[in-house]
Design a protein around this nucleic acid. Structure first.
Length: 284
DNA sequence: ATGTCTACGGCACGTAGA
């Protein structure tokens, strides 16, 4: 099974590149983030012509996640149980007797594809460590940890991949000194990732196509991609059964080049998964 | 270079988010 994850930064703006990338790369399962469209606006017909079924979860202008699969797509979950909603900076100014029902943002979608439980995740950015958005990010990760613990208990091989908006180590940013006081590198964010790994998930670190660091994101500004000043924030967290069958993984930096790219590159993982589709196989 | 992208509302370009 060839699995990929890619923050496309608008699936509508990226559609020609997405379609040609699908044809060239031939993944069986693709996790997309920042699709920035409602489910009914997702170009399911266009990817369908290439043989992919779609599960999409979106809200319009921001966020949005999807799973594409040509090995089946079943048991779709839009979001996860306990997923928090962003209450914003205005929390506390609302009348106490006027509870407001907030809908979680479209940041997670799960589906079972070819015998593998697949999650496409788009973690909150956090904006700055003193913001309400940062607290929301940490709460979202704690709820994700609880949800993935339950998901793993189902016994299927599992991958939770996407834009985690956290660089796991200082090696995963081009210059740690630039990030002092910033999100993506704080101890609390890295602890949230460590707690996911404590569930038995393994960080599938891809091979960089160029240079020593498998960065997956480079800011559009200031020639950051040209100078390879990037970050590794798009991660594949795989259960033991999947991690033990990973043949290879790479960052497709070619997809970050040229006119009209996303600011993220895809991560592509090849897995020996011939027996995952069988019923009655070993769990986990 | 606070230097780039995107979507939105609404039809020009300012604003917000990343």
């Amino acid at each position: 099974m060839r699995l990929a994850t890619w923050n496309v930064n608008s699936v509508k703006a990226r559609l020609p590149r997405l379609l040609s990338w699908l044809e060239e790369t031939g993944p069986d399962v693709v996790c997309l983030q920042e699709t920035k469209c409602r489910a009914d606006q997702f170009p399911a017909d266009e990817v369908g012509e290439l043989g992919y079924a779609t599960a999409a979860h979106g809200e319009g202008r921001w966020n949005g996640v999807a799973v594409l699969s040509r090995v089946g797509i079943e048991d779709v979950s839009n979001g996860f149980p306990g997923e928090p909603a962003y209450e914003g900076e205005a929390d506390g100014q609302l009348a106490l007797d006027e509870p407001v029902m907030l809908t979680p943002e479209a940041r997670a979608i799960g589906a079972t594809c070819g015998g593998v439980r697949v999650w496409s995740l788009y973690a909150p950015n956090g904006r700055s460590p003193d913001s309400a958005h940062y607290l929301y990010k940490l709460a979202w990760f704690e709820a994700l940890r609880a949800a993935l613990e339950d998901e793993l208990a189902r016994g299927l091989p599992l991958v939770a991949c996407g834009d985690y908006n956290v660089a796991p180590t200082d090696e995963d940013v081009w210059d740690p000194s630039v990030f002092v006081g910033s999100t993506h590198v704080t101890p609390a964010e890295r602890k949230a990732l460590a707690e996911l790994r404590d569930l038995g998930l393994h960080d599938v670190v891809p091979t960089p196509m160029k240079g020593p660091h498998p960065y997956t994101y480079w800011d559009y500004r200031a020639g950051m991609f040209h100078k390879n000043m990037g970050m590794r924030i798009d991660l594949v967290y795989a259960s033991e059964a999947v991690a033990g069958r990973v043949r290879s993984a790479y960052v497709d930096r070619e997809a970050r080049k040229g006119k009209g790219p996303s600011d993220h590159a895809p991560v592509v993982v090849d897995i020996d998964a011939a027996d995952f589709g069988r019923t009655g196989g070993a769990p986990g």
